[in-house]
Nucleic acid binder design. Structure first.
Lengths: 139, 139
DNA sequence: GCTTGACCTTCCCTTGATGGGAAGGTTTAG
DNA sequence: CTAAACCTTCCCATCAAGGGAAGGTCAAGC
């Protein structure tokens, strides 16, 4: 199976397959006589695993460890769960940050008339005027 | 005021001040005889504006437009509000995506015993076994 | 007045995951 | 046999930020 077919079969672009190989996420694919990559079913499964893990927001490094655990029949599920919970905490922290931004912005936009007049609480807030003191802490 | 003082006064690192200048976000600072940048109060205000806008997640390009609007006494607040709402929609979309990831991950972690045994619903899910069908759509 | 240390300057490199595109080799269908 | 489709490697760009080197400037203390 060449890289184009593998990409189609897994939903991972050819570019990214080469990148994952270069990063050591997947082992170097076999090569045909003409130097084309030749993917086995196992490779395809690995790529699907990677795509799903990316879909959950895991980084390349994290996925590398997840793949090792996956391949290890004697893994303790404790380790996988720990990774998942660590990543979950990261996600939740980022979500919280973004929600603070969004809430602040929503409030400011709500307070802005949005007409032809120049008065604008959004710009006032950015300029540092804080009449109402509603603002996310810019950590 | 040299760049170090300006950085201290605004909470923007010297590196980033130079970067903003290079990107055309702020006008090139005056120079002393010794070729040091020399920041005016107005520059400092601009930098504070930029820091707050970054804190709300606006991109450099967006901040560039916000600064123009801020400096324009005849701006219609409509334009500012439109930018804010556009950015808010982006934020909300990203938050939604991340929340889907987090919810899926939370469910999987909850279902994982997290002990010494190898059985792991997290890995099973990534591997493509979908006994329970609870999974965020990996768009 | 000179030294020293703190600060500044520019320039280049790195990040992370992804894509664009060029130059050139291979395979496949007609 | 040719043309199109596909593959290869290599380099570049993204975005906001920081690291660090090499060298110039300034200020404080002696």
């Amino acid at each position: 199976m060449n890289i184009g077919k593998a990409a189609q079969a897994t939903g991972v672009s050819a570019k990214m397959i080469r990148y994952y190989e270069a990063q050591g996420l997947i082992r170097p694919a076999d090569r045909t006589e003409g130097n084309y990559r030749d993917f086995s079913d196992r490779d395809v499964n690995d790529l699907r695993f990677i795509r799903r893990a990316r879909g959950l927001g895991f980084s390349i490094d994290e996925i590398s460890r997840l793949l090792s655990l996956w391949r290890d029949d004697a893994r303790p599920s404790r380790e996988v769960k720990a990774m998942a919970e660590k990543h979950l905490a990261d996600l939740d922290a980022r979500i919280r940050e973004m929600r603070e931004m969004a809430d602040t912005l929503r409030h400011l936009a709500h307070c802005c008339a949005g007409d032809e007049r120049p008065d604008c609480p959004i710009l006032s807030d950015l300029a540092g005027d804080r009449p109402q003191g509603v603002h996310a802490g810019n950590a």
